[in-house]
């Protein structure tokens, strides 16, 4: 059951990313290009995605997950160094190439050699992240 939901969700996610245009780096960079020829498509994608998700969050109040267990709790409101620094670094990479983790995966079969290179670099970055996070924590502790 767990695997079934993972496949159903992953398939919908990948198809949605392609059909929405979000695996096209021109559209993503076009959205971020506020001071150039702005392309609002990404805002429509975000808006569209919020609707089923907001309904789903409402539904979590009166039930438990189908496979059992409990729903993820709201994380404590804490804007730590990790959240801010990580998001700044992510935005930098996102702006440079126009790919974020979802589209990088979804476009693997039609993204060419560059797509594979991006994914490989991204996986290396993910491997290095725990070390980088610990460094940020030690800086926070010292401050």
């Amino acid at each position: 059951m767990r695997i079934f939901f993972a496949i159903l969700s992953g398939g919908l996610f990948g198809a949605g990313l392609l059909l929405s245009g979000m695996t096209d780096t021109n559209k993503v960079q076009g959205f971020l290009d506020l001071f150039g020829n702005w392309d609002p498509t990404l805002a429509f994608v975000m808006g569209g995605a919020m609707i089923p998700m907001a309904i789903a969050w409402q539904m979590t109040k009166s039930r438990t997950p189908v496979i059992g267990g409990s729903f993820p709790e709201m994380p404590a409101t804490e804007f730590d160094r990790r959240l801010i620094t990580g998001s700044v670094l992510f935005g930098l990479g996102w702006g440079l190439a126009g790919l974020c983790p979802g589209p990088a995966i979804a476009s693997l079969t039609y993204g060419g050699t560059g797509g594979f290179l991006f994914l490989a670099a991204m996986l290396i970055g993910m491997r290095l992240a725990p070390t980088a996070s610990r460094y940020l924590d030690s800086r926070s502790a010292a401050a």
Partner: peptide
């Protein structure tokens, strides 16, 4: 483009809803 964006977005949201309500996880 915007209509496809909205439709694709709805699919992405539906994917997140399936993962949340099915497996209790954040997509």
């Amino acid at each position: 483009d915007w209509i496809w964006g909205l439709l694709g977005g709805l699919m992405i949201g539906a994917a997140g809803a399936v993962y949340l309500l099915g497996n209790g996880r954040i997509m």
